[in-house]
Design a protein around this nucleic acid. Sequence first.
DNA 1: TTGCCTTTTCCTGATT
DNA 2: CAATCAGGAAAAGGCA
Length: 239
Amino acid sequence: MYHHPAMPFSLPSNLPEDLPPSTSQALLTEVCAASLPWDHSEFAYETSDMDLPFLACLALPSYSTLVSDTCNMADKESTVEGPPQFTELLATVTAYRRNLDEQVLQENTKSPFMVGDTGVPGESKTQKVQRENSRQKKKGQSVHLWEFVRDLLLYPTKDLEAVRWENRKEGTFRVIRSDTFAQLWGEQKKNKCMNYEKLSRALRHYYKSGILERVNGRLTYKFGRKAHGWKDEPLQKVT
DNA sequence: TTGCCTTTTCCTGATT
DNA sequence: CAATCAGGAAAAGGCA
């Protein structure tokens, strides 16, 4: 599923307690039947339940209002607002996915971090995710570079494609546009001096920790054993 | 304040 | 020659 680059996106605080009892694909169909500002048919993807919260957000009436307001605004200020909003969206997606990852990790490993977190009685999964999200926001936890890259791959955009899967099963990916890649990361970190030289150095630091593995070929990287989340397959392209 | 971790910045040298 | 890779070193910044 592609997200429109100029789409402002944040998880609304009034998410339904429980998500609609439908599959993600059905919900996507439902969402796309509404007036979305981009032609979804061109970028139709099979989704997984991991995407449900996002699709649910899109399906909310409040979001439709937001979209139409934003489109009107975009008409007036189309030259001012642009790609930076994409990084905001990506940051939201990344934060959400990290929460999912952490939850899965905690449930699987009974991590000591769970001690003391007894949860809220009667709390739904969605509420729990929101609670974790806001806690993370309060902590000001920043997005790690490898997570940013992972989500660029999982949530690509038509206009700003910087990286592309080389071999999805093996976790190898290739940098398509090094300048765009660095620009997006720079926007994420609010660092105008970011370039591919520095970005690639940061990526190479991951070799030692096992988050990335060395592969042959220029501009090509591979997720290592310590990287998680990239194997989830919410975005199989429909042909 | 301190230590740890991640990322940034700069650098040299090698390779494509 | 430019772009990229590899990795050392030091520093910055965030967090517990």
